[in-house]
Design a binder for these strands. Structure first.
Lengths: 235, 235
DNA sequence: GTCTATACCACGATAGAC
DNA sequence: GTCTATCGTGGTATAGAC
């Protein structure tokens, strides 16, 4: 009856989503059982299957609930930039910063537990076979198309194929870094903790790197030319 | 008795490792059950626990069996380069090419099913909590230290902290790309299949990007300077 | 429509016989 | 070293209460 009631006690579906999100972030997908989720949400085990059909579909819903607004914000950021540019090409730094800044805002929003979600997102890209491959394209297609077009206009000398490659590399670096997988903390033991937990600091370091890669000299068109570095191999 | 016997029919331990590797590559860790592995290997279910202790330890062993030689080759490549340079700094392109080429050789070796293994490796980095975090540092520490030192010498103007950041980004891009996670095939639908399955082609595109990022202008030292792109935020 | 109780089969792990 | 039997827990399916 009372509207406030629905705010204080969200319905079963959303309580499951909230509980699942937190647990997925803390422990990963596989380590989180439906029994943990339903216990935390205070609902019956079978409620997951009733509302979402399966654990996989629950995972998908957890993602799309955050990815929708995040990517919408990314599109809005680009709209704003392009409107103020009035048809002139944008700067690559501007474009990438627009893309990253939406993630930064999410990461800094404690109410949305955004930092943990970005970490989840980073993981999801590396998921072997299954959930992710099915719905990630739908979530990202529009964003990638718009940003790719903006970058193509900003970098007219970069062929389309090469731009796709570099977008690929950029996605990898972003997913690993903003995603907080902390490859270096894994692979070696160099401490960047203080800065690495500060999203703005991450972007400050990441942005010049990405732009440097994006605007790098183009590779040779055919085969690897043994010009300088590969000389010694041939004897 | 006969030595040939042991070659034709490897012992239980190795048959499990071979079967596990293939199945992990095809389906991921969690989707692969011990019962599938032991069935394929033609051994009893309990043999896995007897020889490896647990599924996690089996996964670790599958990795270290390949990572050991791979990283040893990376170190040997760097040794060779530095020997022929006789104390002079190397070129960043040379250094990164040495690192990547070992992976390329592995990927091209059908007998070792290297391509699939690199895909496994890429996934492993994104694994949330568990197996990987424990043994990856040991596997990579020496390699990262040596390559980092070589790059520091090659790029004396890049501060140590910034170099660590850029190594971080480079690892991300490599893991995603050489690992074949195919972010772009996931995130949008741009076809690079023909080239993406050719390791040399991947490196040809990847190398200029990484060097471009590595040698990019340094970020501002303190805070994000609102120089150009972030101007509109502050009004 | 929404929720609950409960049963089902596959999983990883282990103990103990051989 | 290898096997069988068994345990606790996982995701899932369904019958039936509200």
């Amino acid at each position: 009856m009372n509207r406030i009631d629905t705010q204080l006690a969200p319905d079963t579906k959303e309580r499951i989503l909230d509980a699942a999100e937190v647990l997925f972030m803390e422990q990963g997908f596989e380590a989180t059982s439906l029994r943990m989720i339903t216990a935390r949400a205070g609902v019956n085990l079978a409620a997951v299957n009733y509302h979402f059909g399966s654990k996989e579909d629950l995972i998908k819903t957890v993602f799309s609930r955050r990815l929708g607004p995040l990517n919408a914000e990314r599109l809005a950021m680009l709209d704003r930039l392009e409107a103020s540019a009035r048809g002139r090409p944008l700067d690559p730094t501007q474009i990438l910063e627009a893309f990253l800044s939406a993630g930064v805002r999410l990461a800094r929003d404690p109410a949305r537990r955004g930092g943990a979600f970005l970490r989840l997102l980073g993981r999801a890209f590396a998921e072997p076979s299954g959930y992710v491959r099915e719905f990630m394209p739908d979530q990202y297609e529009a964003v990638v198309a718009r940003y790719k077009a903006a970058l193509a206009k900003a970098l007219p000398h970069v062929p389309d194929r090469e731009l796709v490659w570099r977008l690929h590399f950029i996605f990898g670096a972003i997913a690993y870094t903003l995603g907080g997988t902390d490859v270096l903390k894994l692979a070696c033991r160099y401490p960047l903790e203080d800065e690495a937990n500060n999203p703005e600091a991450v972007v400050r370091h990441l942005l010049p790197f990405l732009v440097g890669g994006l605007t790098a000299p183009l590779p040779d068109a055919s085969g690897v030319r043994k010009s300088r570095s590969a000389r010694s191999k041939q004897g």
